[in-house]
């Protein structure tokens, strides 16, 4: 399903991320069914998707379309009911909790709609929370500088705006130098201008660090900053297209 379309937005001289990128995730015929008492919900009904190194994709779709479920399965938070998910050839679909925990710890950076910062830790400490437990992290200060919060490192979450809190969450996610960055509605709780700043940070990380990035949104406007847009509806991928022209995050309006 992966398209090998040249990226017109790509800067000259940059490594060929799309064509030469190794496949990071591979999802094959993934279904997910939740039994809620007497009702069964089929959140995913046979999804095939792959994500390559350095690729920036946006998962687009209305609420209930299954995009969060897919992201959670890719991130090792959940397991599929059937089908196979591999991360760099390692099977994730049958992995036990300890394996998935180690996988999240070492390979995945998560960003959520509601930041999920630890209120009792400062910005720097929230980042350090991660850097203390992984191999080869970047210094917390550096992660915070990347998201533009170098001067607010010693503030507690309660002293930061929503956008700033989300950028701390991003810094926390990237500080481990993850191979993939998974963002679930990172701008969902933010206004336009703040949302743009957050997206800029994500964009910059994908560009400068080459981290494979998947962003969930229900906001179609956001899709234009990605290399590729995957559209979900009712548990199925209904469209998978490459962006002919990537818009810079700062030029977004919605």
């Amino acid at each position: 399903m992966t398209a090998s379309i040249p990226d017109p937005a790509r800067q000259a001289g940059a490594p060929d991320r799309l064509d030469g990128g190794e496949v990071v995730f591979e999802a094959k015929d993934v279904t997910k069914r939740y039994d809620m008492g007497e009702v069964a919900v089929n959140a995913l009904r046979g999804v095939n998707l792959s994500l390559r190194a350095s690729e920036f994709i946006v998962l687009l779709g209305p609420s209930g379309s299954g995009k969060s479920t897919l992201l959670n399965i890719l991130g090792g938070l959940d397991v599929p009911t059937s089908g196979a998910v591999t991360y760099r050839g390692r099977d994730l679909s049958g992995a036990d909790d300890a394996t998935r925990t180690a996988y999240r710890r070492n390979n995945v950076g998560f960003v959520f709609q509601f930041y999920n910062l630890i209120p009792s830790l400062t910005a720097r400490e929230n980042v350090a929370l991660v850097t203390e437990i992984v191999r080869d992290p970047m210094p917390p200060q550096e992660a915070l500088r990347i998201v533009g919060l170098g001067d607010r490192m010693n503030h507690f979450p309660a002293q930061l705006s929503g956008g700033e809190q989300q950028r701390v969450a991003i810094a926390r996610a990237i500080s481990k130098r993850p191979e993939v960055l998974l963002c679930d509605e990172p701008t969902g709780a933010l206004d336009i201008s703040t949302g743009v700043v957050v997206l800029e940070a994500i964009e910059r990380i994908n560009r400068e660090l080459g981290t494979a990035t998947a962003v969930i949104t229900h906001n179609a406007a956001v899709a234009s900053i990605a290399d590729r847009v995957v559209q979900l509806s009712d548990g199925l991928i209904v469209a998978d297209r490459s962006n002919p022209v990537k818009t810079a995050a700062r030029d977004l309006t919605w």
């Binding site: 925990t101 996988y103 999240r104 999920n116 929370l129 437990i133």
Partner: peptide
């Protein structure tokens, strides 16, 4: 739970 998501063990 956030900590668990980040890869902290039980």
């Amino acid at each position: 739970a956030s900590l668990r998501v980040m890869g902290f063990t039980r």
